[in-house]
Design a protein around this nucleic acid. Structure first.
Lengths: 127, 127
DNA sequence: GTCCCTGCAAATCCTTTGCACTCCT
DNA sequence: AGGAGTGCAAAGGATTTGCAGGGAC
């Protein structure tokens, strides 16, 4: 695979800011730096990085996809008040423990866990 | 809310066939029975039923949404070979156990767990 | 020089919406 | 009769694709 400045930028952006951005967010922030950047390029590179396993796509239930360069096993908490997506450490659930519980011939390769509710920050503000 | 034959059909379809269909699948199967049926009506009623809490929407990571009239707490296993969506009993994870593990101020209202892998049926065929 | 990657615009796919008409109540 | 629900077609939003030009190797 050939080097490309645009792909590097997208990956770096995701590695630095861990805010689970949408393609559009990545695009508009990077376009400020490189005005020639195209949204199609951002999408193409996000898909590529997903296929390479360097980035994961989050289907949070919103109409848009979000992206995350943290590919370690972790869950996501989506706050119903502030809409922020918060990383949750993996201890809650592992592929192995799922496979053990499913038993009888299931082969587990991955899982996605989305938790919805109110984050500590918003919960405190409400009180 | 007023009775409508179309809404009743959509709900009945979901209650009977538990195959997690897409809006398009529901539409084409029911259109065979009532040819005047419109896809927009299927979408409108699916959204309504979701709001009423009689149906849940599944964001499996495919481009299309799937729907499920089983609103009890259960996970979904998506077979990477046959693409079938299989219901997994709830014992794996409950909102309460998540909340307990998150601790420190998180309030959990719901969660979605998608497990990806190979189902027993396809695993056996491969061997 | 070759071929992958880009930017742009058009296309595609899923879903929603506006409007006139229908049919519950 | 009144208003929610329908069907149709057109609009909408997110993402992908075709193509000509540009950059990596």
């Amino acid at each position: 695979m050939k080097y490309s400045k645009q792909r590097e930028m997208v990956l770096q952006y995701l590695l630095e800011k861990k805010n689970h951005p949408t393609a559009e967010q990545i695009y508009s922030e990077l376009k400020a730096v490189v005005p020639s950047l195209s949204l199609a390029t951002v999408y193409r590179n996000l898909n590529l990085l997903c296929e390479l396993g360097k980035v994961q796509r989050l289907d949070t239930g919103e109409t848009v996809d979000r992206f995350d360069a943290d590919i370690s096993n972790h869950a996501h908490f989506i706050c119903e008040v502030c809409q922020h997506v918060i990383d949750i450490p993996s201890e809650i659930l592992s592929d192995q423990s799922i496979e053990k519980q499913l038993g009888s011939g299931y082969q587990v390769s991955s899982h996605k866990l989305f938790i919805y509710g109110i984050c500590p920050c918003c919960k405190q503000l409400k009180q």
